[in-house]
Computed example of a mutant assay.
Amino acid sequence: MTFEAIHNYYEHLVFRKIAEAAAVEDANFLEDVACVALNHLPPRYVRQSIDLLFYMSSDEYAEMLRRVDEAVENAIAFVQAHRKRQGKG
């Protein structure tokens, strides 16, 4: 038995949003942002992304995107502030 196909759908959305929103190339910073953002979103586990999209209304999908935008923006601010307090940026 293998579970390799199972993943949290929010991961894809968060990673894509970070790539669009982050103006830095520091891998550690981006990974920290991803972790903070994902920890503030509910898990949505799927085997295939199309499974989720098929059963979701356009309003529900828009709400997911709004939540991702907010989580990533807050995570960027949080990680930046944390690094400043530690003298890393």
Results as ranks from 00 to 15, higher is better:
H12T: 13
Q48E: 05
E11P: 05
D32L: 01
E25G: 06
F15G: 02
E25D: 11
H40S: 15
E25L: 01
L53N: 08
D32W: 00
L41F: 14
V14G: 05
V14C: 07
L13M: 12
P42G: 07
A23F: 00
A19W: 04
M56L: 15
N39H: 15
A37I: 14
N39K: 14
A37K: 07
A23Y: 00
N28Q: 10
A27K: 12
V36R: 12
A21Y: 01
A34W: 01
S57M: 11
F29G: 08
A22H: 01
Q48N: 03
V24P: 00
P42L: 14
R47G: 06
V24L: 05
L38M: 15
C35V: 15
E31N: 13
L53V: 07
A22G: 02
V46M: 02
F29Q: 13
C35D: 15
A27N: 10
S49E: 00
V36W: 02
R16Y: 01
D32E: 15
F54M: 12
N28F: 05
F15I: 14
A21W: 00
F29T: 09
A34I: 11
Q48A: 01
A19G: 09
V36T: 09
K17G: 04
A23C: 02
E20A: 02
L53G: 03
L38W: 10
D32M: 14
F15E: 08
N39D: 14
V14W: 03
Q48W: 03
S57Q: 05
E20Q: 09
V24Q: 03
E11Y: 07
H40D: 15
K17T: 10
V14H: 01
E31A: 12
R44C: 15
E25F: 03
S49C: 04
P43E: 15
F15Q: 09
D32F: 02
S49H: 00
E11C: 10
A19S: 11
L52W: 02
K17H: 06
S49N: 04
Y45R: 08
A34Q: 08
L41I: 14
I18R: 02
N39W: 11
P43V: 15
P42S: 09
Q48P: 00
F54H: 13
V24D: 04
